[in-house]
Amino acid sequence: MQEKPLILVTNDDGITAPGIRALIRIMNTIGEVVVVAPDSPQSGMGHAITVDNVLHCNPITIDDGPQIEYNCSGTPADCVKMAKHEILNRVPDICVSGINHGANSSINVIYSGTMSAAVEAGIEGIPAIGFSLLDFNYHADFKQAEEFIKKITLNVLLNGLPDATVLNVNIPKLKKEDIKGVKICRQANGYWKEDFDKRKSPFGKEYYWLSGEFVNRDKGQDTDVWALENGYISVVPVQFDMTAHHAIQKLNQWEL
C-alpha cells in the first residue's frame, strides 16, 4: 500500500486560529498531518528565530481529527526547525503554512511569519506553500478557499517545486463562485507609507502605534496585487537566494 504523504502544518497566527484549523481539515483529506505551530500569535515576526531563550514544544489536543499536534513557544521559523529536527521521524513531503488572516502579497512577504515558515521549510529542502486569505477578521470564512488550497497542494505533491523555491498563495475575499481562477504572478513593487500614532499614557509616558497605508507603485497586470484586485488567486514563486544578480556586474566596476 502506498504511504500517505506526510504534511507539516504551521502558521503565524497561533495554533488555535481559525485559519490553521481550516488548513488542518483540508490537509487531513490528503495525507498524514503533523502540526507544529506557535502557542501565541506571531504575526509580522518575519524570519526571526529564538537564540537567547529556551523553547518549549508540547503535544496538545485542540479538536477532533487524526492529526498530531504540538504547540511551540517560538516563532514560525522555530516551529519548522523543531518539527524537522526533533519531532518528525522522516522529512515531510510538504509543509503548508497558514491560512493567514490577511494578505501577504507584494512587500508583505518580507514581514510575514506565515511565509517565513514556508521559506524555512524550503531552506530545509521541503516543498512548501504559504496560504493567505485577504480577510483580517478572526471569524473569516475559509470555505471558499478550500478547493483551491487542496488543488494547489496536490499539484505540488505531484510535480514538486523548482530548487530553492516556495509558493506564496493569496486568496481574495470573495465567494467561491466569484473567484475567476488562479494566476501565476510576480510580486508587485509596492511599499508601506508608514506613520506612528504618538500617544500618552494616563501617567504621561509617550507610546506609539505603527500605522500606514500600502502604496502600489506597480501598474503591471502580471502582479499578485493586480490578480487579487481582479478576482484571481495569486501564486508567486518565491526564492530565498536574496542575491541581486543583476547588480553584480555593476558593482564589479567599482574600484574596491
Rank of each mutant, 00 (worst) to 15 (best):
K81I: 08
S211L: 02
Y138T: 13
E86T: 11
I49E: 11
Y111F: 14
Y70N: 02
Y208L: 11
K176P: 00
T10P: 06
Q239K: 14
Q2N: 15
N189I: 12
E86C: 10
E120S: 13
R25C: 03
E120A: 12
G44Y: 03
T243P: 01
G220Q: 08
P41N: 04
I126A: 12
V166H: 05
T10I: 05
R217M: 11
A145I: 02
Q67V: 10
I60V: 15
L55V: 01
D141V: 09
V80A: 07
F203L: 13
Y208Q: 14
K150P: 10
P92W: 11
K200P: 03
L210V: 11
E69G: 12
D12I: 02
A188N: 08
G98I: 02
P5A: 13
A140Q: 08
P38F: 00
F142H: 03
N159I: 03
N28D: 05
K205W: 01
D218K: 07
R90D: 00
R25F: 00
D39C: 09
N58D: 07
S116P: 01
P92G: 11
S97M: 08
V109G: 01
M115P: 00
Y70R: 03
V33F: 06
H56I: 09
G181P: 13
G181S: 10
F148V: 08
